[in-house]
């Protein structure tokens, strides 16, 4: 697990991404966006599930994420399988998952939404665009998660 912590914030983001280069770019984009958040990074679906389920005490003390950014093409457990597993767990199903991937194939988009993804973003090539996209995304979800929950 890599922790990219800028400023202490109550907004926790879990990035599930096997490519370190991409994970780093996401880190750049978030930092440049100026949105305060804590980014947790795991490299595949298995690891992500372990993170969420607090398996073997490895993630004790780390808060559950407010938002999950998910890559689709990953070894071991891919994005789709992970998404299905998360949505099948009652206590985890409410965490919004935004798919963040290179693929713009309609089939993949449809598949992601059918598995109850909360959003789908094709990784922009241009860094400025990427930064803007990340800013809007994080602002939106931070606002949503901070709304008072209905009892």
């Amino acid at each position: 697990m890599t922790m990219l912590k800028d400023t202490p914030s109550p907004f926790d983001v879990l990035l599930v991404e096997d490519e370190l280069a991409d994970a780093r770019l996401v880190g750049f984009a978030i930092r440049q966006s100026g949105i305060a958040c804590t980014l947790h990074h795991v490299t595949d679906g298995h690891e992500a599930l372990a993170f969420l389920k607090r398996e073997a005490g490895r993630y004790d003390g780390v808060p559950q994420p407010d938002l999950i950014l998910l890559d689709l093409n990953m070894p071991r457990m891919n994005g789709g399988e992970f998404l299905a597993a998360v949505k099948a767990q009652e206590n985890l199903a409410s965490i919004p998952v935004v798919v963040l991937t290179t693929s713009a194939v309609e089939r993949d988009v449809e598949h992601a939404y059918r598995l109850h993804a909360s959003g789908y973003i094709t990784k922009p090539v241009d860094m400025d665009e990427f930064t803007t996209a990340m800013r809007h995304l994080l602002e939106y979800w931070r606002m949503l998660t901070r709304l008072p929950k209905k009892e």
Binding site: A21, T102, V125, F130
Partner: peptide, 17 residues
């Protein structure tokens, strides 16, 4: 094409960076 796209995209992004 799909697999080429990812490194191509990163190449561009890192060049910009």
């Amino acid at each position: 094409a799909h697999h080429l796209m990812e490194p191509t995209r990163r190449l561009t992004s890192y060049a910009q960076q």
